[in-house]
Write a protein that binds this DNA or RNA. Structure first.
Length: 549
RNA sequence: GCGCCCGUAGCUCAGUUGGAUAGAGUAUCAGAUUCCGAAUCUGAGGGUCGCAGGUUCGACUCCUGUCGGGCGCGCCA
């Protein structure tokens, strides 16, 4: 059985059709009123039809309601409110059905098929393999991973991909920096490039190579040596990144190397370029090959092949995006730092010019994060003197808090990450407020020992119980909506409001009551269903649900 | 100068294809444990939704202008 929102949607659609002969699909919406006194659900359909029917909304609503009273039997009441809302209240008996639905679904409760099997390729994190992940990547990683979890749970077919920039100049810099540190290890001189990587982790990798390979690279052929140190550097940096992501509960299905597109004599890139050339999208100027991106909304044309014959960053990345589509993913999502926003127009221009539909690529931009403590920005790690890494952040505040905080605020807003607050293990910290509720649930179920599934839970009639039932039943809708809009913060909001009601219920009603085993059993069903829902919701955020804390 | 993002309670933020009296948390103040974990609960105060116009039955939401903050404007990646 589907949830109430869908049931009401169908019932209203049918009622409008039979009363007015109108297909309301495009204008019909079922909502939850802000004020619960209005009802459990409402629709503004009568107001939306007013213009078309030339009648007062309340007059339009009346026959619809009469029809609904006959067809929608799960309702306890259906009423018209000014200026023309139709408000529904669900009967207690229908509401309590959700308990068995949740108990049967278990870990999969919240799953829905709103994604209809749509194939989506999500590219995110994609930090350069030249150093450790820092807090900006942590925001990107948490958000992207939750988006993937939400979409998977909503029936999308998701591929999680990391694009590795291992072909550009910054990788040469990494190689040169490693060689310099390698020489330094053996007491020899080698210039550390000015734009090179000076961080401690680069030094450490150079030392590892020195220990592993000995002195044999000191007198080696310079270009062979650079190639080796590039490759070693990238591999070892990537291994660290993968390990950090694993610690952060993020896993990728696919690691796509930029160098892949240079393989086979750059076949994929050449194909792309010749496609663009034959479509008349390019021109030569000053010895370089340009893309006429201004024809597709860009503010200036972009260089594809530089005058020295090498390619700009854009070119292999176009091939990368084309290759995603060719692999069978017509829907692409990228998560980039907001400082790359001008690049969004460029990439979309390229895809559009090549003939792909306008909505092929969605780029979600992640605004900057500032780590803040006591109202002041924390720029450097006290221990290392460098930018704070994702690992240091998680060792400090915990993975649960880090992921919760990053995912609870829309990435379109500039974020101050409050280190002090995230570290708190008390009621100031929303993560612990939610996890504590789960521990309380677990503890109650442990204590009660027995629970027996029943066909009906007809004695759950307290205000808080009915509210809980309704919220539990709405969970799959919240998941679907969060997946559709790619906003996991809708789930943190849901969890907070669910947990608030649960804590309140816990304080006002005793669950375990030895004088009334039947009522105890019914309440245990509600508590158990709440626990399952809460754990699944936290799971979508990559946050744990501890049995005790 | 041009482009993108943001501006809602003291602070951090929600606000459901435009809907009902703009909501949470926190902080402040006042209360609640004979009983399932007080890491909890109940209540109070707190607002010109940056500002000014426009669109309509209805605007925090859409449009125009304007102010403030962030970011970007390379044959770097």
């Amino acid at each position: 059985m589907s949830d109430f929102e869908h049931q009401i949607y169908e019932a209203v659609k049918n009622a409008v059709s039979s009363v007015y002969g109108i297909d309301a699909t495009d204008v019909l919406a079922v909502e939850t009123p802000r004020d619960p006194k209005m009802g459990d659900y409402s629709t503004s359909i009568a107001m939306r039809l007013a213009k078309q029917l030339h009648k007062k909304p309340s007059d339009i609503a009346e026959p619809i309601v009469e029809e609904l009273k006959k067809t929608f039997t799960q309702a306890k009441s259906i009423e018209i409110a000014n200026p023309g809302f139709i408000n529904f209240r669900i009967s207690e008996d229908s509401l309590s059905q959700v308990i068995n639905r949740i108990l049967e679904a278990g870990d999969s409760y919240g799953s829905n098929d709103s994604g209809k099997g749509t194939k989506v390729l999500v590219e995110w994190v994609s930090a350069n393999p030249t150093g450790d992940l820092h807090c900006g990547h942590a925001r990107n990683a948490a958000w992207g991973d939750s988006i993937c979890r939400l979409m998977e749970t909503s029936g999308y077919d998701v591929l999680r991909e990391y694009y590795i920039n291992d072909a550009g100049n910054q990788v040469n810099m990494l190689g040169e920096s490693l060689i310099a540190r390698y020489f330094e290890y053996f007491g020899k001189e080698y210039p550390l490039p000015e734009d090179g990587y000076h961080a401690e982790d680069v030094k450490k990798i150079a030392e590892e190579i020195a220990v592993q390979d000995g002195e044999r690279w000191l007198d080696a052929d310079p270009s062979e040596r650079l190639a080796y140190f590039r490759k070693e550097g990238v591999n070892r940096e990537l291994a660290k990144i993968e390990k950090d992501l694993e610690m952060y509960r993020v896993s990728m299905d696919s690691w796509m190397h930029e160098t892949f597109f240079y393989e086979d004599d750059s076949r994929r890139i050449r194909d792309c370029l010749s496609r663009m050339e034959s479509m008349g999208l390019t021109y030569e100027k000053d010895g370089a090959l340009w893309f006429k991106s201004t024809d597709y909304g860009d503010d200036k044309d972009r260089v594809l092949r530089k005058s020295d014959g090498s390619l700009s960053y854009l070119t292999p990345d176009i091939a990368n995006h084309v290759y995603k589509v060719e692999r069978g993913y017509p829907n692409l999502i990228d998560l980039w730092g907001a400082d790359h926003h001008s690049y969004v127009i460029r990439m979309n221009a390229a895809l559009k010019a090549l003939g792909y539909p306008a909505d092929t690529l969605h780029v979600d931009l992640i605004q900057m994060v500032r780590l803040v403590e006591n109202g002041e920005e924390v720029k450097m790690s006290k221990r290392t003197g460098n930018a704070i890494t994702i690992r240091e952040l998680c060792e400090d505040v915990g993975v649960d808090a880090a992921r919760w905080f990053f995912v609870s605020k829309d990435v379109a807003t500039h974020m101050d990450f409050d280190m002090y607050l995230a570290r708190q293990k008390d009621n100031n910290n929303p993560v612990y407020y939610c996890q504590y509720a789960y521990s309380r649930i677990h503890s109650i179920l442990e204590k009660a020992q027995t629970f027996e599934k029943k066909d009906t839970y007809d004695r759950l009639s307290e205000e808080k119980e009915l509210l809980l039932l309704k919220m539990l039943g709405d969970f799959p809708n919240h998941v679907a909506e969060a997946a559709r809009t790619r906003k996991p913060n809708k789930i943190t909001d849901y969890v907070l409001s669910l947990v608030k009601v649960y804590h309140s219920y816990y304080n006002s009603c005793r669950v375990i009551n030895n004088d009334d085993p039947d009522l105890t059993n019914q309440r245990l069903g509600l508590v158990k269903a709440t626990g399952i829902t809460l754990k699944n919701a936290l799971g979508l955020l990559g946050v744990s649900a501890p049995d005790s804390m």
